[in-house]
């Protein structure tokens, strides 16, 4: 426990334990991790707001093709800058204990680039482009066919975009999602 304890009051820790999927100890551990991102800032103010560029130094976010999206989704100011509470929230959603529905909700937001609460064709395209990385390219036709196939599978009501219900339907049927949508603290 050691040094972390001094920065948080017992009440705060209790709050964090109640509102996340973490125990107090894990919360403190998370804070240590957060501190590593910007020791000078967090040392002064435990809940300092770190800009997105700093947040992206977190190893998992750094290599994740959706790193910036994740930061934006979890940032309370919506611009990608995260406070410790935002960070804790992020880690809690990505933890093993978080239920599928919560994870699905956030995954949907991460994938919803244009924020229209639907995963449209442009969203899907962007997801695929990010997934395969900058070095690899799919031809125009291949991309089209891929998206067509995804829509064929997932778009239950044939409206050319995936609503949250449809997305959740897919996620519910995926055995891999829980294994994959996870970051160890």
């Amino acid at each position: 426990m050691g040094q972390g304890r001094s920065q948080f009051s017992e009440e705060e820790l209790q709050d964090y334990q109640d509102l996340t999927y973490f125990t107090k100890k894990e919360v403190l551990y998370a804070h240590q991790k957060f501190k590593v991102l910007a020791p000078e800032k967090v040392g002064h103010n435990k809940n300092a707001k770190l800009p997105m560029s700093k947040m992206l130094n977190y190893p998992e976010l750094n290599v994740n093709p959706f790193g910036d999206r994740i930061c934006k989704v979890f940032s309370s100011s919506r611009d990608g800058d995260c406070t410790f509470e935002d960070f804790l929230d992020m880690m809690s959603v990505f933890s093993e204990a978080a239920p599928k529905s919560v994870k699905a909700e956030h995954a949907f937001r991460i994938f919803d680039f244009d924020g229209d609460d639907m995963l449209g064709i442009s969203d899907l395209k962007q997801i695929i482009e990010r997934l395969i990385g900058k070095d690899n390219h799919l031809g125009e036709q291949e991309m089209e066919r891929l998206i067509q196939n995804v829509l064929e599978e997932a778009d239950l009501d044939d409206d050319g975009a995936l609503s949250f219900a449809e997305f959740e339907h897919i996620i519910d049927r995926s055995s891999d999602f829980l294994n994959v949508f996870r970051m160890r603290l």
């Binding site: 290599v63 070095d135 599978e153 994959v180």
Partner: peptide
Amino acid sequence: NVFANRIFCGWDYSIATKEAAHLKSLAI
């Protein structure tokens, strides 16, 4: 839902090194 699965559950969020991430992209 082979395709939808590959796309929505494609990335492994626990990956934390450049090398692994690169290989993952390639694998996908």
